[in-house]
């Protein structure tokens, strides 16, 4: 029986780079051969969520939201626009970071949809954050002497967004690889503006848990942290702020290993992905490690 993957992401009317990570991850998964079809769909670009399912032939579709946390988009907008009429957020039975999947019918196309939790809350994201830290420092063993800040937007729309940041920070702390791990935010305490004050280490890697680079990750955060006065002139990696070397990594969502998280989501939901996870992992870590 054929199976399709549809990756659903936000996209943008203004920023052409917004869809790039989605395409890149989709291409990597396509190359792994795990699915008969892989499609991308967007809230702000095309195909829209409303019309994505009719572009795949398979009767069984795995839908993975390329979003950082459970909230407005994953709980309301996406299920509504995909016409998963029977959807109820209770189907995920989630504490805010634990959604795995729910199986529903899309009313307009009569297909079975395995609606997965967002990539951002999957356990495998911790590996992507580490991978990001390794690639920005160009050190596969980075950890000793380094602090790690996981940065989120803050609670403006939904408290689950902060939960996801804390969740990963806690798990990374338990791994005992970095000297210190902290969750920081753009819009609430502890704020990323004062990043160097929250760490004892001389070197701090800062990774925003964002899907794509955009205004927040390229302009606001670098200026807020003080690694540049004007984002247009760029910033150094590392950059020194108040005696601390800040290694700013940019959006974690652009990391090739994100493709693995998407696959893990579908495997958790019952997709037959065979060896693809191993292949994508090898491919993504190889691609990022040199």
């Amino acid at each position: 029986m054929s199976q399709a993957l549809v990756i659903v992401a936000h996209g943008s009317h203004l920023n052409p780079g917004s869809s790039t990570p989605t395409y890149d991850h989709a291409d990597r998964i396509r190359a792994s051969g795990a699915f008969d079809e892989v499609r991308e769909a967007f809230w702000k670009e095309e195909p829209s969520f409303r019309e994505a399912l009719r572009t795949v032939a398979a009767d069984e579709v795995f839908v993975v939201p390329l979003f950082v946390s459970e909230g407005y988009f994953t709980e309301q907008v996406i299920p509504r626009e995909l016409r998963l009429d029977e959807w109820n957020v209770a189907a995920w039975d989630s504490d805010g970071t634990s959604a795995s999947h729910a199986t529903l019918e899309a009313e307009d196309v009569g297909k079975t949809v395995h609606y997965c939790g967002p990539v951002g809350t999957h356990d495998a994201m911790a590996d992507v954050l580490v991978q990001r830290a390794e690639s920005i420092t160009d050190d596969p063993d980075v950890g000793e002497g380094f602090g790690l800040a996981v940065v989120g937007h803050g609670t403006e729309r939904n408290e689950n967004s902060a939960k996801a940041i804390h969740y990963h920070a806690d798990r990374l702390r338990e791994r005992d690889r970095f000297e210190e791990v902290r969750a920081l935010f753009m819009d609430e305490d502890p704020e990323v503006d004062d990043v160097e004050e929250f760490f004892e280490s001389d070197d701090v890697i800062v990774v925003p848990l964002f899907i794509a680079d955009g205004f927040h990750t390229q302009e606001d955060i670098p200026e807020d942290m003080g690694i540049t006065d004007d984002y247009r002139t760029g910033y150094d990696v590392p950059a020194e702020v108040g005696g601390t070397r800040i290694w700013y990594a940019g959006a974690v969502g652009t990391e090739p290993l994100m493709a693995d998280v998407i696959l893990e989501r579908t495997a958790d939901a019952g997709a037959d992905v065979g060896e693809a996870i191993d292949r994508v992992r090898a491919d993504a870590t190889g691609a990022a490690g040199d």
């Binding site: 095309e46 019309e51 572009t55």
Partner: peptide, 11 residues
């Protein structure tokens, strides 16, 4: 074609 004009064939 679907890359240029998504979902137009289906609709």
């Amino acid at each position: 074609v679907d890359g240029f004009y998504p979902a137009t064939v289906a609709n």
